[in-house]
Amino acid sequence: MNSDFNLTISLDIMGGDKGPLITIPAAIMAIEKMPNLHLILCGDEFFIAQELTKLHQKDNPQLSICHSTETVAMDELPASALKNKKDSSMRKAIDLVKSNKSQACVSAGNTGALFATAHYVLKMLPGVERPALISALPTHDENKHVFMLDLGANVFCDSNVLYQFAIMGSVLAEEVDGIESPKVALLNMGTENIKGSDHIKYTAAQLTNNPHINYIGFVEGNDILSNKADVIVCDGFVGNVALKTCEGVALMVYSKFKTVLSKRLLTRLLGKFFASTIKKLFKSLNPDQYNGASLIGLRGIVVKSHGNASSLAFLAAIMEAAREVERQVPDKIKKKLEQSLAD
C-alpha cells in the first residue's frame, strides 16, 4: 500500500461496456475530490498511459498502473473467467486487495465473474455463507435512501442466508450512513405474518429474536421507496427484478414529463418557471448517484458498478468504496455477526 496516502483503491479499468473511456475520467475526478486517495489502475499499461497523457495526468502521484494482459468479457462465463483469466484487470484489482496493497476494489465488469473471483480470492467472513450485492435506492424523503440486498448475486437464499444478509445490511446502513439502529424489513408478498414462503417466515422469526437488529416486519413492493425501512432484505432474484423495475419506472416518468413539457406553450413556460425545482427532482432520481453495489460478506471491500455506467456513475462507485474503507465495514460486519451468533 502506498505510504504517501491513507486510502488506496484498485480499479478494474478495462471492465464495463466502455472500459477506460469511462473509468479513467472517473478516476481523475475521484483524486481531484480526495487528495488522500491513491488509485491503482489495473489494465493495459500502454493504453492507460496514453489516456493519462491525453488528460495531462501521466505523472500524477495519486495514480499508478498495474499492468494486465487480459480482460474479462461482459458475456464470459464466471467459471471460465476464474479459471482462464488470471491476468485480467478484474483479477489484478481483487488480488491487490488480497495482498493488502489496496483497501478496496471497484469494477464495472461482468457481475458473475466478479462474484466468483472475489469469492475465490478474498474468501468469506466467518459466519457468512454467501456474499450479497447491496446498494442504496432513493425514497420519498429526498434526504434519505434505503439499502436493499440481495440485488442479484444469489438467485435463491434460504432463511440462514437471509438472516446473515439482514445483519450485514444493518451494519452497512449504520456505518456508511450513520443511522442509529437501522430499521430492517423483509420484502414479502404481504405484511401479514401468515403471508410468504416458509423460509421467509423462519427468517422473520430469527430476526425477531435477535436483540441487536431493529427488525420491523414485512414490507411489500410498493413500500420499497416509502422510507418505512432503512434496510430491505430479499433473495437476489426478487431484488434484481425489483431494482430494474424501479429504474425503469423512474426513466419512464422522466421521459413522459419531458414530453408533456415540450408539447404546449403554457407547459413549456411553466417548465422554465419551475426549472430549478424540476432539475432538483430529477437529480434525486438519477440512478448515477446510487451507482455502486457493494459485494458484502467478503474479507475485503468490493464494489460493483453498472456495466453501462457513465463517468459520474463510476465516480459514485469509487466514493462508495472509499466510505466503506474509512468506516472499516468488513470488520464491523464480522463483529456484529460474532455477537449475533453468540446469543
Rank of each mutant, 00 (worst) to 15 (best):
S3L: 11
S10T: 10
S10F: 06
D12K: 05
G16I: 00
G19N: 00
P25F: 04
A26W: 03
A30D: 03
A30Y: 01
I31L: 05
E32D: 15
K33Q: 15
L39E: 00
L39P: 04
L39A: 05
L41S: 02
C42W: 03
D44M: 01
E45D: 11
A49P: 07
Q50N: 14
H56E: 15
D59H: 14
L63P: 05
H67G: 05
T69P: 07
V72D: 02
V72K: 00
E76T: 08
S80C: 10
R91H: 15
D95R: 03
S99H: 09
S102F: 03
Q103C: 09
C105M: 11
C105K: 03
V106L: 01
S107I: 04
G109C: 07
T111C: 04
A113Q: 01
F115V: 14
T117G: 11
A118G: 15
H119W: 12
P126I: 05
V128G: 07
I134G: 15
I134C: 15
P138A: 00
D150R: 05
N154W: 01
C157D: 00
N160T: 14
V161L: 13
Y163H: 12
Q164S: 12
Q164G: 09
I167D: 06
M168A: 06
L172E: 09
E174F: 07
E175L: 12
P182H: 03
P182Q: 02
K183S: 02
L186V: 08
N188C: 06
M189A: 14
M189W: 08
G190Y: 02
G190K: 13
I200Q: 12
Y202H: 15
Y202G: 10
A204H: 04
P211F: 05
I213R: 08
I213H: 08
Y215L: 01
V219A: 03
E220T: 09
I224Y: 10
K228R: 13
A229K: 09
A229L: 01
I232A: 05
I232F: 02
V233R: 08
V233A: 02
V241I: 11
K244V: 00
C246M: 15
V249A: 12
L251S: 15
M252A: 13
V253E: 07
T259P: 07
V260E: 13
L261Q: 04
L266K: 13
G271K: 00
F273Q: 13
S276K: 06
K280M: 10
L281N: 13
G292Q: 04
A293G: 05
I296A: 12
L298I: 05
V302A: 07
K304F: 03
G307V: 06
A309Q: 04
A309I: 01
M319N: 12
M319R: 09
E324H: 15
V325E: 06
V325L: 05
Q328Y: 12
P330S: 00
K334V: 03
Q339N: 12
L341K: 11
A342W: 08
